[in-house]
């Protein structure tokens, strides 16, 4: 019985992904933009980094981080950050879209729990992000080259619980767009908070004390930090194993919080009746 249910949920997640892919490519301009987008934002940052370098090394940067390869530091930060955005932005936006176009109700009328529907919706946006990231990483490596320690596998393992946690929280936050009129605000604010404060483009040590405290309370900070520690051998805030432990804990807490918010939002929407037109 349990197994059948799981199989059913996998079927629906697959169906949602296929549907998202089809719709994605029926807006060709949008599709092209989403794929080349990361190349567009990485370019100016690269030249910025380049301009601060002295003799090929970024001295000031090295004092804080322990590596002078700002480019690699940045790329890793950006890849993680784009996963965060994909989960928040992609899902929140697609939810809002479906709500505005009226198909959200049709989905809520299927015998599939909302959580499973949310997982389904996030799959495709993560796939796109993965493709984005690989393209960027590859291009940058091809043109400028940077060295990565051979810790790819342990970096991925370290990141895994964090991504799960982000999913959890992401579902909750994405669902918040259903109860505000402005999806973009919710997404922008949370995205900014999560990414910037936890240091996707700079070592958090340079933050003012108060903000640093907030930053250290965000598990995402340890995600950025530990992965850089592994790949670039930067100095980490805490010993690596402690950061990894935090991320695992975060996985449980994060999914629980996300699930909690999602349920609340669903109840709220069904109480005020805002997801359909009336």
């Amino acid at each position: 019985m349990k197994w059948q249910k799981l199989k059913f949920y996998m079927t629906t997640i697959w169906a949602i992904t296929i549907k998202d892919i089809k719709i994605f490519f029926r807006y060709p301009i949008n599709a092209i933009f989403r794929i080349v987008e990361p190349i567009m934002w990485i370019t100016p940052v690269y030249f910025l980094a380049k301009s601060f370098q002295i003799g090929g090394e970024n001295i000031g940067f090295k004092l804080f981080s322990g590596t002078s390869d700002y480019m690699a530091f940045l790329i890793i930060g950006s890849i993680i950050a784009s996963f965060v955005s994909a989960i928040l932005w992609g899902m929140g936006f697609s939810l809002k879209n479906e709500m505005d176009s009226g198909v959200l109700e049709s989905n809520w009328l299927t015998p599939v729990p909302l959580l499973v529907q949310m997982i389904g919706r996030s799959i495709f946006s993560v796939i796109i992000t993965l493709i984005n990231s690989l393209i960027v990483a590859f291009l940058v490596w091809l043109i400028f080259g940077f060295e990565i320690g051979n810790g790819i596998v342990s970096a991925v393992i370290t990141l895994f619980p964090m991504l799960i946690a982000l999913y959890g929280i992401g579902f909750g936050i994405a669902s918040l767009v259903l109860i505000t009129n402005n999806a973009n605000n919710v997404i922008d604010i949370t995205n900014y908070l999560l990414n910037s404060i936890s240091g996707n483009r700079f070592p958090v040590e340079i933050l003012p004390r108060v903000i640093l405290a907030v930053s250290l309370a965000l598990p995402l900070t340890y995600g950025f930090d530990s992965v850089r520690g592994i790949l670039l051998e930067t100095n980490t805030l805490l010993p690596l194993y402690q950061e990894q432990l935090i991320l695992v804990l975060f996985m449980f807490v994060g999914t629980a919080i996300g699930y909690f918010i999602l349920n609340k939002v669903e109840k709220y929407c069904k109480t005020i009746g805002n997801i359909g037109h009336y």
Partner: peptide, 15 residues
């Protein structure tokens, strides 16, 4: 239950 709500927006127009 098979429910059809009012309005023509209950299906994906791009599919």
């Amino acid at each position: 239950l098979g429910t059809v709500l009012a309005g023509e927006r209950s299906i994906y127009w791009k599919l």
